[in-house]
Amino acid sequence: MVLKRFSAIERALALIWLAPLALVGCGVHVIPPATTAQKAPPPTYTVAVPVPPPAPKPKPAPAALVATVHSLARNFDGLAGIAIKSIDDGWTVSANGEHKMPQQSVSKLWVAMTMLDARDKGLLSLDDPITITKSDLTLFHQPVAGLLEDGSYTTTIGKLEHRALTTSDNTANDKLLWRVGGPDAVRNFLASRGITDIRFGPGERLLQSKTAGLTWQQSYSIGRNFYKARAALPTEVRRDAFNAYLADPPDGAAPVAVVDALARLKKGELLSAGSTTWLISTLQDSRTGPNRIHGAVPSDWVYGHKTGTGQDFDGRTAGYNDVGILTAPDGRSYAIAVMIGETSRTIPQRWKLMHEVVKGLIAAHDHS
């Protein structure tokens, strides 16, 4: 028998091979090497994000009204800006609607809104007393001046604002303007509401004196002193000042911007509900310009508005306006602005332009 000698390496390999068998015999289990487990994919989730429906597109403007408005503006002897906005349907019709026209007393609207915004913030009340003295007097139309007894007149902010809007009293408006912080306060209000293309001037005294070619003096507020000082100026001075105002009115406003702001007022987007109601009802009490737009409004329609009239020179007028909210018997409303920036047409001819605009709107409403 031949005995085979095993090398050290062979003996080591034999021990490694026999070791698991020995362990099994001893009752010890050998755990095989772990294999890489297949991980399950993470769960997926679907989150439903609500998507608001797209805003409804404004209905198209009535074609007949578009034609009427453009024809009226085109054939008018002077610069006339016309804009109409359907507050319910969203469409706008305009001619020269982007041109900044002199506002004149139309700008009293923005003073009123600024005052009511201060009321909404709790900074003042319509019942707060306010006193006018001779140092507050301005010029042109200021019937409150006749109420100054012993040099002063005390009323409330609400009553003075009602007077400013319904009778277009310049002194009443300027007193309220400075009560709420001056021209910058009004400009800040307009900017805070995103109202663009509407300027606000420096106040009645500075605006009118510069338009005439004068430097304001408080003595101009008494009697006819302003008219006398203006008449004494050289014609060239007056013409240059008048033309400069027309070329770039510091109180200029685009008719489209005006009707947009009025529509937002009506929808309650500018002031609180109470202040909105107060302002709209006050505008409906207005007694100025009965033969302007109001002259063509049927008795069963409601019109709340503000007028504005500028100075005359050499047969021309710088600003002859009427803007407001016109409401039909069925409750549908329209913001309307007819702003004559410059014209030598007669007053009745200006009224006719405004009347034709209203007639065209009512005809379009009746056929819609």
Rank of each mutant, 00 (worst) to 15 (best):
2 V>I: 11
4 K>E: 11
6 F>S: 14
7 S>C: 05
15 L>W: 13
19 A>D: 11
20 P>Y: 07
20 P>G: 11
22 A>Q: 15
24 V>L: 15
31 I>H: 00
32 P>Y: 06
33 P>R: 04
34 A>Y: 00
35 T>S: 02
39 K>D: 04
41 P>F: 04
41 P>R: 03
43 P>S: 14
44 T>P: 03
44 T>Q: 14
45 Y>S: 02
48 A>L: 11
48 A>Q: 02
49 V>L: 05
53 P>D: 05
54 P>K: 01
55 A>P: 07
56 P>Y: 06
56 P>G: 13
58 P>D: 13
62 P>A: 12
62 P>I: 09
67 A>S: 15
67 A>G: 11
69 V>T: 04
70 H>D: 03
71 S>V: 10
80 A>S: 06
86 S>L: 15
88 D>G: 12
90 G>H: 15
91 W>H: 08
92 T>L: 12
95 A>V: 03
98 E>H: 06
99 H>A: 14
101 M>Y: 08
102 P>V: 00
107 S>M: 12
107 S>W: 09
108 K>T: 01
108 K>H: 01
111 V>N: 13
114 T>V: 08
114 T>W: 07
123 L>M: 05
124 L>M: 10
124 L>E: 09
125 S>Q: 10
132 I>Y: 04
133 T>I: 08
142 Q>A: 02
142 Q>R: 08
146 G>T: 13
151 G>N: 10
151 G>F: 09
152 S>Q: 07
159 K>P: 14
159 K>M: 13
166 T>L: 00
172 A>C: 08
173 N>K: 08
175 K>M: 07
175 K>Y: 07
175 K>Q: 09
176 L>G: 01
178 W>Q: 10
185 A>R: 00
188 N>P: 07
193 R>V: 02
193 R>K: 07
201 G>T: 06
208 Q>H: 06
209 S>W: 09
210 K>W: 13
211 T>E: 09
215 T>F: 08
215 T>I: 14
216 W>I: 08
218 Q>P: 05
221 S>G: 07
225 N>V: 04
229 A>Q: 03
232 A>T: 01
234 P>C: 12
237 V>I: 02
243 N>P: 11
245 Y>A: 10
246 L>M: 09
246 L>K: 15
248 D>Q: 10
255 P>E: 00
255 P>W: 02
256 V>P: 06
256 V>F: 11
262 L>N: 11
263 A>C: 11
266 K>F: 14
270 L>H: 10
271 L>H: 04
272 S>M: 01
274 G>N: 15
285 D>R: 09
286 S>I: 06
289 G>C: 00
290 P>L: 00
291 N>T: 14
297 V>E: 13
297 V>K: 13
299 S>F: 05
311 Q>H: 08
313 F>P: 04
320 Y>M: 05
320 Y>D: 07
323 V>W: 01
324 G>Q: 01
324 G>L: 04
330 D>C: 03
331 G>T: 10
333 S>G: 14
335 A>Q: 06
338 V>S: 01
345 R>L: 08
346 T>W: 00
346 T>E: 01
347 I>C: 10
347 I>G: 06
348 P>N: 04
348 P>F: 05
352 K>H: 08
357 V>I: 12
359 K>P: 11
362 I>F: 03
364 A>S: 12
364 A>G: 10
